[in-house]
Write a protein that binds this DNA or RNA. Structure first.
Lengths: 164, 164
DNA sequence: GGCATTATTGAAAAAGAATGTCAATTCCTA
DNA sequence: TAGGAATTGACATTCTTTTTCAATAATGCC
Protein backbone atom coordinates (compact mmCIF):
# COMPACT_ATOMS: atom_id res chain seq x y z
CA UNK A 1 0.00 0.00 0.00
CA UNK A 2 1.32 3.38 -0.98
CA UNK A 3 0.62 6.28 1.34
CA UNK A 4 2.46 8.91 -0.66
CA UNK A 5 -0.71 10.88 -1.23
CA UNK A 6 -1.34 11.09 2.51
CA UNK A 7 2.20 12.13 3.25
CA UNK A 8 2.03 14.78 0.57
CA UNK A 9 -1.24 16.09 1.96
CA UNK A 10 0.26 16.27 5.44
CA UNK A 11 3.41 17.92 4.14
CA UNK A 12 1.34 20.44 2.28
CA UNK A 13 -0.71 21.20 5.39
CA UNK A 14 2.41 21.59 7.51
CA UNK A 15 3.99 24.04 5.13
CA UNK A 16 0.78 25.96 4.52
CA UNK A 17 0.60 26.49 8.27
CA UNK A 18 4.18 27.69 8.28
CA UNK A 19 5.24 24.80 10.46
CA UNK A 20 8.36 22.71 10.34
CA UNK A 21 8.55 19.23 8.92
CA UNK A 22 10.39 17.40 11.67
CA UNK A 23 11.62 13.84 11.85
CA UNK A 24 9.17 13.09 14.68
CA UNK A 25 6.20 14.30 12.69
CA UNK A 26 7.25 12.27 9.71
CA UNK A 27 7.65 9.11 11.78
CA UNK A 28 4.35 9.57 13.60
CA UNK A 29 2.48 10.28 10.38
CA UNK A 30 4.14 7.24 8.85
CA UNK A 31 2.96 5.03 11.70
CA UNK A 32 -0.50 6.56 11.54
CA UNK A 33 -0.88 5.94 7.82
CA UNK A 34 0.43 2.38 8.02
CA UNK A 35 -1.44 1.19 11.11
CA UNK A 36 -4.95 0.44 9.93
CA UNK A 37 -7.96 0.79 12.17
CA UNK A 38 -8.90 2.99 15.07
CA UNK A 39 -6.39 3.23 17.87
CA UNK A 40 -5.89 5.11 21.09
CA UNK A 41 -3.07 7.54 21.72
CA UNK A 42 -1.42 4.84 23.84
CA UNK A 43 -1.53 2.33 21.01
CA UNK A 44 0.01 4.77 18.52
CA UNK A 45 2.60 5.73 21.10
CA UNK A 46 3.62 2.08 21.52
CA UNK A 47 4.03 1.72 17.77
CA UNK A 48 5.98 4.93 17.47
CA UNK A 49 8.23 3.80 20.31
CA UNK A 50 9.19 0.71 18.31
CA UNK A 51 10.21 3.00 15.47
CA UNK A 52 12.02 5.55 17.63
CA UNK A 53 12.06 5.19 21.42
CA UNK A 54 13.11 8.78 21.93
CA UNK A 55 9.79 10.19 20.77
CA UNK A 56 7.57 11.24 23.63
CA UNK A 57 3.89 10.64 24.16
CA UNK A 58 3.16 14.35 24.07
CA UNK A 59 4.54 14.63 20.57
CA UNK A 60 2.44 11.71 19.39
CA UNK A 61 -0.57 13.37 20.97
CA UNK A 62 0.13 16.69 19.30
CA UNK A 63 0.84 15.17 15.92
CA UNK A 64 -2.40 13.20 15.99
CA UNK A 65 -4.23 16.46 16.73
CA UNK A 66 -2.37 18.01 13.83
CA UNK A 67 -3.44 15.20 11.53
CA UNK A 68 -7.00 15.86 12.61
CA UNK A 69 -6.64 19.55 11.85
CA UNK A 70 -5.27 18.65 8.45
CA UNK A 71 -8.41 16.65 7.82
CA UNK A 72 -6.41 13.43 7.50
CA UNK A 73 -7.31 11.90 10.84
CA UNK A 74 -10.53 11.72 12.75
CA UNK A 75 -11.01 11.47 16.46
CA UNK A 76 -13.70 8.99 17.27
CA UNK A 77 -15.29 7.89 20.53
CA UNK A 78 -16.92 4.61 21.33
CA UNK A 79 -18.29 4.19 24.83
CA UNK A 80 -15.21 3.71 26.96
CA UNK A 81 -14.25 7.38 27.14
CA UNK A 82 -10.96 6.86 25.33
CA UNK A 83 -10.29 8.89 22.21
CA UNK A 84 -9.31 6.90 19.17
CA UNK A 85 -7.90 8.13 15.91
CA UNK A 86 -8.35 6.80 12.45
CA UNK A 87 -7.82 7.71 8.82
CA UNK A 88 -10.30 10.27 7.57
CA UNK A 89 -9.82 9.40 3.93
CA UNK A 90 -12.94 9.72 1.87
CA UNK A 91 -12.92 6.02 1.06
CA UNK A 92 -12.43 4.91 4.65
CA UNK A 93 -15.47 3.95 6.58
CA UNK A 94 -16.37 4.67 10.14
CA UNK A 95 -19.34 2.54 10.72
CA UNK A 96 -19.23 0.45 13.83
CA UNK A 97 -21.52 -1.82 15.69
CA UNK A 98 -20.61 -1.51 19.36
CA UNK A 99 -21.77 -3.86 22.07
CA UNK A 100 -22.51 -1.73 25.11
CA UNK A 101 -22.16 -4.78 27.35
CA UNK A 102 -18.81 -6.28 26.34
CA UNK A 103 -17.32 -3.44 24.29
CA UNK A 104 -16.85 -5.55 21.18
CA UNK A 105 -16.68 -3.50 17.98
CA UNK A 106 -17.63 -4.82 14.57
CA UNK A 107 -16.76 -2.77 11.50
CA UNK A 108 -19.67 -2.44 9.18
CA UNK A 109 -20.04 -1.07 5.71
CA UNK A 110 -23.12 -0.41 3.71
CA UNK A 111 -22.80 1.44 0.40
CA UNK A 112 -26.40 2.66 0.65
CA UNK A 113 -25.52 4.65 3.75
CA UNK A 114 -22.51 6.16 1.99
CA UNK A 115 -24.74 7.18 -0.85
CA UNK A 116 -27.30 8.79 1.44
CA UNK A 117 -24.56 10.61 3.32
CA UNK A 118 -23.33 12.20 0.13
CA UNK A 119 -26.87 13.14 -0.74
CA UNK A 120 -27.34 14.79 2.64
CA UNK A 121 -24.05 16.66 2.35
CA UNK A 122 -25.15 17.99 -1.01
CA UNK A 123 -28.54 18.94 0.39
CA UNK A 124 -27.03 20.94 3.25
CA UNK A 125 -24.18 22.29 1.11
CA UNK A 126 -21.39 20.64 3.09
CA UNK A 127 -18.00 19.44 1.89
CA UNK A 128 -17.96 16.03 3.50
CA UNK A 129 -14.72 15.18 5.31
CA UNK A 130 -15.75 12.07 7.14
CA UNK A 131 -18.26 10.62 9.46
CA UNK A 132 -18.78 8.63 12.61
CA UNK A 133 -21.57 6.16 12.59
CA UNK A 134 -21.85 3.95 15.63
CA UNK A 135 -24.70 1.61 16.29
CA UNK A 136 -24.95 0.76 19.97
CA UNK A 137 -26.61 -2.34 21.17
CA UNK A 138 -26.17 -5.69 22.83
CA UNK A 139 -24.52 -8.50 20.91
CA UNK A 140 -26.10 -11.93 20.77
CA UNK A 141 -23.87 -13.53 23.40
CA UNK A 142 -24.28 -10.66 25.85
CA UNK A 143 -28.03 -10.64 25.29
CA UNK A 144 -28.09 -14.35 26.12
CA UNK A 145 -25.99 -13.77 29.23
CA UNK A 146 -28.26 -10.94 30.37
CA UNK A 147 -31.22 -13.18 29.77
CA UNK A 148 -29.71 -15.88 31.99
CA UNK A 149 -28.92 -13.35 34.69
CA UNK A 150 -32.46 -12.06 34.59
CA UNK A 151 -33.82 -15.57 34.97
CA UNK A 152 -31.42 -16.41 37.79
CA UNK A 153 -32.46 -13.23 39.56
CA UNK A 154 -36.10 -14.26 39.30
CA UNK A 155 -35.41 -17.82 40.33
CA UNK A 156 -32.90 -17.05 43.07
CA UNK A 157 -34.57 -14.09 44.71
CA UNK A 158 -37.86 -15.72 45.51
CA UNK A 159 -39.70 -18.55 43.80
CA UNK A 160 -41.82 -16.55 41.41
CA UNK A 161 -45.41 -17.69 41.22
CA UNK A 162 -46.67 -14.96 38.95
CA UNK A 163 -46.03 -14.65 35.21
CA UNK A 164 -45.26 -11.34 33.43
CA UNK B 1 -45.48 14.43 29.11
CA UNK B 2 -46.11 11.32 31.13
CA UNK B 3 -43.11 9.29 32.13
CA UNK B 4 -44.96 6.68 34.12
CA UNK B 5 -43.90 3.92 31.76
CA UNK B 6 -40.24 4.78 32.24
CA UNK B 7 -40.58 4.96 35.99
CA UNK B 8 -42.32 1.63 36.03
CA UNK B 9 -39.61 0.09 33.91
CA UNK B 10 -36.95 1.46 36.24
CA UNK B 11 -38.83 0.32 39.30
CA UNK B 12 -39.21 -3.10 37.80
CA UNK B 13 -35.49 -3.29 37.01
CA UNK B 14 -34.59 -2.19 40.53
CA UNK B 15 -36.73 -4.81 42.17
CA UNK B 16 -35.70 -7.53 39.74
CA UNK B 17 -32.10 -6.86 40.73
CA UNK B 18 -33.11 -7.09 44.37
CA UNK B 19 -32.18 -3.49 44.95
CA UNK B 20 -33.82 -0.89 47.09
CA UNK B 21 -36.05 1.85 45.73
CA UNK B 22 -34.60 4.88 47.47
CA UNK B 23 -35.70 8.50 47.41
CA UNK B 24 -32.43 9.46 45.69
CA UNK B 25 -32.91 6.98 42.89
CA UNK B 26 -36.45 8.14 42.37
CA UNK B 27 -35.44 11.80 42.20
CA UNK B 28 -32.53 11.16 39.85
CA UNK B 29 -34.65 9.03 37.54
CA UNK B 30 -37.32 11.72 37.63
CA UNK B 31 -34.81 14.36 36.56
CA UNK B 32 -33.41 12.08 33.89
CA UNK B 33 -36.79 11.34 32.36
CA UNK B 34 -37.89 14.97 32.39
CA UNK B 35 -34.72 16.62 31.14
CA UNK B 36 -34.72 16.10 27.38
CA UNK B 37 -31.55 15.79 25.34
CA UNK B 38 -28.07 14.50 26.03
CA UNK B 39 -26.39 15.77 29.16
CA UNK B 40 -23.22 15.19 31.10
CA UNK B 41 -23.06 13.86 34.63
CA UNK B 42 -22.34 17.39 35.80
CA UNK B 43 -25.47 18.75 34.13
CA UNK B 44 -27.67 16.08 35.64
CA UNK B 45 -26.01 16.66 38.99
CA UNK B 46 -26.84 20.38 38.84
CA UNK B 47 -30.45 19.60 38.08
CA UNK B 48 -30.66 17.04 40.85
CA UNK B 49 -29.12 19.53 43.25
CA UNK B 50 -31.99 21.93 42.56
CA UNK B 51 -34.37 19.17 43.49
CA UNK B 52 -32.46 17.96 46.55
CA UNK B 53 -29.12 19.54 47.49
CA UNK B 54 -28.20 16.67 49.76
CA UNK B 55 -27.77 14.20 46.90
CA UNK B 56 -24.15 13.62 46.00
CA UNK B 57 -22.50 13.43 42.60
CA UNK B 58 -21.48 9.83 43.16
CA UNK B 59 -25.08 8.77 43.57
CA UNK B 60 -26.11 10.58 40.41
CA UNK B 61 -23.26 8.85 38.62
CA UNK B 62 -24.25 5.45 39.93
CA UNK B 63 -27.92 5.92 39.16
CA UNK B 64 -27.17 6.97 35.59
CA UNK B 65 -25.10 3.80 35.18
CA UNK B 66 -28.02 1.91 36.61
CA UNK B 67 -30.38 3.48 34.10
CA UNK B 68 -27.99 2.39 31.36
CA UNK B 69 -27.94 -1.14 32.72
CA UNK B 70 -31.70 -1.11 32.75
CA UNK B 71 -31.61 -0.22 29.07
CA UNK B 72 -33.40 3.07 29.72
CA UNK B 73 -30.40 5.36 29.27
CA UNK B 74 -27.54 5.43 26.80
CA UNK B 75 -24.07 6.73 27.30
CA UNK B 76 -22.96 8.65 24.23
CA UNK B 77 -19.75 10.44 23.30
CA UNK B 78 -19.32 13.33 20.90
CA UNK B 79 -15.77 14.56 20.48
CA UNK B 80 -15.01 16.29 23.77
CA UNK B 81 -14.38 13.16 25.78
CA UNK B 82 -17.23 13.81 28.19
CA UNK B 83 -19.79 11.07 28.65
CA UNK B 84 -23.35 12.14 28.08
CA UNK B 85 -26.49 10.27 28.92
CA UNK B 86 -29.76 10.29 27.13
CA UNK B 87 -33.01 8.40 26.89
CA UNK B 88 -32.57 5.12 25.06
CA UNK B 89 -36.03 5.31 23.57
CA UNK B 90 -36.25 3.74 20.16
CA UNK B 91 -37.65 6.88 18.56
CA UNK B 92 -34.74 9.14 19.46
CA UNK B 93 -32.45 10.16 16.64
CA UNK B 94 -28.81 11.08 16.76
CA UNK B 95 -27.90 12.22 13.33
CA UNK B 96 -25.89 15.38 13.04
CA UNK B 97 -24.09 17.32 10.36
CA UNK B 98 -21.13 19.00 12.04
CA UNK B 99 -19.00 21.75 10.51
CA UNK B 100 -15.44 21.04 11.60
CA UNK B 101 -14.51 24.67 10.96
CA UNK B 102 -17.18 26.62 12.85
CA UNK B 103 -18.70 23.87 14.99
CA UNK B 104 -22.20 24.43 13.72
CA UNK B 105 -24.43 21.39 14.16
CA UNK B 106 -27.45 20.63 12.00
CA UNK B 107 -29.77 17.87 13.13
CA UNK B 108 -30.62 15.56 10.28
CA UNK B 109 -33.04 12.74 9.90
CA UNK B 110 -33.41 10.27 7.09
CA UNK B 111 -35.78 7.36 7.53
CA UNK B 112 -33.83 5.32 4.99
CA UNK B 113 -30.83 5.32 7.32
CA UNK B 114 -33.00 4.21 10.23
CA UNK B 115 -34.26 1.36 8.14
CA UNK B 116 -30.77 0.24 7.12
CA UNK B 117 -29.60 0.45 10.72
CA UNK B 118 -32.26 -1.98 11.81
CA UNK B 119 -31.32 -4.24 8.94
CA UNK B 120 -27.68 -4.21 9.98
CA UNK B 121 -28.55 -4.90 13.60
CA UNK B 122 -30.53 -7.89 12.46
CA UNK B 123 -27.71 -9.05 10.22
CA UNK B 124 -25.13 -8.96 13.02
CA UNK B 125 -27.58 -10.24 15.63
CA UNK B 126 -27.54 -7.14 17.81
CA UNK B 127 -30.30 -5.72 19.96
CA UNK B 128 -30.15 -2.11 18.85
CA UNK B 129 -30.21 0.38 21.71
CA UNK B 130 -29.36 3.56 19.86
CA UNK B 131 -26.83 5.15 17.56
CA UNK B 132 -24.60 8.12 16.95
CA UNK B 133 -24.31 9.30 13.38
CA UNK B 134 -22.26 12.40 12.79
CA UNK B 135 -21.30 13.69 9.35
CA UNK B 136 -18.24 15.90 9.56
CA UNK B 137 -17.46 18.43 6.91
CA UNK B 138 -17.11 22.08 6.07
CA UNK B 139 -20.19 24.17 5.65
CA UNK B 140 -20.61 26.41 2.61
CA UNK B 141 -19.60 29.65 4.33
CA UNK B 142 -16.54 28.13 6.00
CA UNK B 143 -15.49 26.51 2.73
CA UNK B 144 -15.62 29.94 1.07
CA UNK B 145 -13.59 31.47 3.89
CA UNK B 146 -10.97 28.71 3.71
CA UNK B 147 -10.75 29.24 -0.02
CA UNK B 148 -10.04 32.95 0.49
CA UNK B 149 -7.42 32.18 3.14
CA UNK B 150 -5.68 29.73 0.87
CA UNK B 151 -5.53 32.31 -1.88
CA UNK B 152 -4.23 34.97 0.49
CA UNK B 153 -1.56 32.53 1.72
CA UNK B 154 -0.45 31.94 -1.87
CA UNK B 155 -0.53 35.62 -2.66
CA UNK B 156 1.35 36.59 0.50
CA UNK B 157 4.20 34.09 0.07
CA UNK B 158 5.05 35.17 -3.43
CA UNK B 159 3.04 37.30 -5.87
CA UNK B 160 0.98 34.67 -7.63
CA UNK B 161 0.42 35.24 -11.33
CA UNK B 162 -1.84 32.27 -11.84
CA UNK B 163 -5.54 32.12 -11.06
CA UNK B 164 -6.78 29.16 -8.95
C1' DG C 1 29.26 27.22 7.43
C1' DG C 2 27.94 29.90 11.63
C1' DC C 3 24.65 32.51 14.19
C1' DA C 4 20.28 34.34 15.76
C1' DT C 5 15.46 33.53 15.83
C1' DT C 6 11.64 30.76 16.24
C1' DA C 7 9.27 26.40 16.44
C1' DT C 8 9.28 21.93 18.46
C1' DT C 9 10.09 18.50 21.74
C1' DG C 10 9.50 15.68 25.95
C1' DA C 11 9.35 15.12 30.99
C1' DA C 12 6.61 16.29 34.38
C1' DA C 13 2.83 18.63 36.30
C1' DA C 14 -1.89 20.04 36.05
C1' DA C 15 -6.50 19.53 34.95
C1' DG C 16 -10.49 16.87 34.38
C1' DA C 17 -13.37 12.94 34.31
C1' DA C 18 -14.59 8.38 35.87
C1' DT C 19 -14.49 5.09 39.38
C1' DG C 20 -13.37 3.01 44.05
C1' DT C 21 -13.39 3.25 49.26
C1' DC C 22 -15.54 3.24 53.59
C1' DA C 23 -17.93 4.96 57.62
C1' DA C 24 -22.46 6.71 58.35
C1' DT C 25 -27.07 6.42 57.05
C1' DT C 26 -31.23 4.55 55.16
C1' DC C 27 -34.16 0.92 53.72
C1' DC C 28 -36.42 -3.58 53.93
C1' DT C 29 -38.00 -7.70 56.34
C1' DA C 30 -39.60 -9.88 60.00
C1' DT D 1 -39.23 -1.43 66.01
C1' DA D 2 -34.74 -4.05 65.69
C1' DG D 3 -31.31 -6.39 62.86
C1' DG D 4 -28.94 -6.94 58.79
C1' DA D 5 -28.08 -5.64 54.26
C1' DA D 6 -27.97 -2.15 50.80
C1' DT D 7 -27.07 2.59 49.78
C1' DT D 8 -25.23 6.97 50.24
C1' DG D 9 -21.87 10.79 49.92
C1' DA D 10 -17.40 12.86 50.94
C1' DC D 11 -13.15 11.93 49.71
C1' DA D 12 -9.38 9.36 47.53
C1' DT D 13 -7.62 7.13 43.63
C1' DT D 14 -6.99 6.06 38.96
C1' DC D 15 -6.82 7.10 34.34
C1' DT D 16 -6.82 10.04 30.32
C1' DT D 17 -6.12 14.39 28.27
C1' DT D 18 -3.95 18.75 28.17
C1' DT D 19 -0.70 22.39 29.55
C1' DT D 20 3.82 24.10 31.03
C1' DC D 21 8.50 25.13 30.40
C1' DA D 22 13.37 24.43 29.89
C1' DA D 23 16.12 22.07 26.53
C1' DT D 24 16.64 21.00 21.78
C1' DA D 25 16.31 21.28 16.83
C1' DA D 26 15.10 23.56 12.53
C1' DT D 27 15.02 27.58 9.52
C1' DG D 28 16.50 31.83 7.39
C1' DC D 29 20.00 35.21 7.03
C1' DC D 30 24.54 36.64 6.43
Amino acid sequence: MDNTAFHNAFQEFISRKGMNATAQRRIIAEVFFRFPGHHSLEEFYQRVQQQDPSIGQTTVYRTLKLLCEAGLAMEIHFSDGIARYELAASDSHHDHMVCVACGRVIEIYDPRIEKIQHELARKYDFLLRGHVHNLYGVCASCAAREQRERQRADGGGLPAEKEG
